[in-house]
Amino acid sequence: MSTPLLELSGLTIRFGGLTAVDRLDMKIPVSNIRALIGPNGAGKSTVFNAITGIYRPTEGRITFQGQDITGKHPYRISALGIARTFQNIRLYKTLSVLDNVRIGAHGIGRGGLFGAIVRPPGIKAEERRINEASGDALELVGLLRKKDERADSLSYGEQRRLEIARALVSAPQILLLDEPAAGMNPQEKERLMLMIQQIAARGVTIFLVEHDMKFVMDLAQQVTVLDHGRKICTGTPDEVQSNLSVIEAYLGKEEAV
């Protein structure tokens, strides 16, 4: 097996006395749709926050394309080709839908203060590229029509899609989706699944955290289960579903409700 795109080895994150993630090992190959599941508080979002540089791991290593990215600043990690969405939607609320995506395209350009004021031809071309890429990303998530509306005027499902467009426009190698289907109705979930498959088909590796089991089992190629910060197992959806400890930790509880 060639080097994985993203590799976590012995990733441990503690907050004071609480161990949120405990010696997690994961290998995500290129062009994979990988899901990370587990009960509430299992540490899934914390894993994402560590990968994207928001939290500094207490121990362990994160490598991306063979390069150690542990403890790097989020903006550097983003520049390497890791994009993400947030569990509790973090859009630029008062800005237009288009501007949200154009900010996501920050990495495409180079223009600074001088470019902003003087606007040489190169910068104009760059702006065109940003606008085109933003239009494409909005088209993909079906929000091009609403490009001039304020981000916070969108419905919940639309906001989740806008976050995907904002992440995608930077042409990442890997897209981390933190509960993308949360708050969506069944039709929206169906559309979202198709959308994610479309994105994956373009060669973008997908790593998602999700609560909706049906969604995960239908979409993911491989699933990793986390409980209390520890990995219980990794496998195909079928393997995971038949794993006893998973049923105990997660599905069992779900069914008991």
Binding site: T52, G53, I54, H73, P74, Y75, S78, A79, A83, R84, F86, R90, L91, Y92, I103, G104, H106, G107, R166, S170
Partner: peptide, 8 residues
């Protein structure tokens, strides 16, 4: 935070 994650 979102800005940092957008490469800013």
């Amino acid at each position: 935070i979102a800005a940092e994650c957008n490469g800013i």
